[in-house]
């Protein structure tokens, strides 16, 4: 474990917590893409499928973190699609998730390290996570604005994988550890946030709200 991965995971946890708090406190999921949250839940379930297959006692923080990620993302989807369904902005959350899931699944079958079920599910999860934020960014471009709290959520979510890139550089240098699939997908994922990062740093940090030229 290195400092980059530690802060990456903390940033990821923070993102999940910020979103849950936003929805729970404001009792509304306006401005939040339900599709992105569904895709993240699918990512966690397919990536941590080993938890379900051979459930071993919660003997380390990693297992606890995996369970937190899965339960928090499923609970977030429950809040969006059931509890606060009336506030779900379905009209603007209109990016076709199939256009992300099918290519990720296809690519996972073509480019993977081992052609077996668990490995392909893991690879699918990595590819899907890289593009899972697109419906959320699409929604913001459609509504033309993002609530400040949602911007903080996006910043934490984007920072997590950016920190993981630093973690991979560190591990390559000190542990000669390399996972090309995760690295390439992580770089693509982080690039998708660049536009938002620019807006966040130039606007939200100065207390302004993000308003896109609609």
């Amino acid at each position: 474990m290195n400092i980059f991965r530690l802060f990456g995971d903390l940033s990821h946890l923070a993102a999940i917590a910020i979103l849950l708090l936003k929805i729970w406190k404001t009792r509304s999921c306006a401005g939040v893409s339900g599709k992105t949250q569904l895709l993240f839940a699918v990512c966690f379930i397919t990536r941590y499928i080993d938890l379900f297959l051979h459930f071993v006692s919660l003997y380390n923080t990693e297992k606890v973190m995996k369970l937190i990620y899965i339960s928090a993302s499923v609970f977030t989807c429950y809040l969006i699609f059931f509890k606060f369904k009336a506030t779900y902005d379905g009209n603007h959350d209109s990016m076709r998730a199939e256009f992300l899931i099918v290519p990720a699944a296809g690519l996972a079958c073509l480019i993977n390290t081992k052609f077996d079920a668990i490995e392909i599910l893991w690879t699918f999860s990595i590819y899907l996570e890289a593009v899972a934020i697109l419906p959320q960014l699409f929604l913001i471009s459609k509504t033309g604005e993002a609530e400040t709290i949602t911007s903080h959520y996006l910043f934490a979510q984007g920072s997590y994988r950016a920190l993981y890139i630093l973690n991979w550089i560190y591990r390559y240098h000190y542990e000669s550890h390399v996972d090309t699939i995760a690295i390439v997908a992580g770089v693509v994922q982080t690039i998708l946030y660049c536009d938002f990062f620019y807006l966040y740093i130039t606007k939200v940090v100065k207390g302004q709200k993000i308003v896109l030229p609609a």
């Binding site: 990821h12 990693e62 893991w122 390559y172 000669s176 550890h177 390399v178 996972d179 995760a182």
Partner: peptide
């Protein structure tokens, strides 16, 4: 040569 990573990351 760098070895392929074990799945030890979240």
């Amino acid at each position: 040569a760098p070895k392929v990573a074990p799945k030890d990351e979240l």
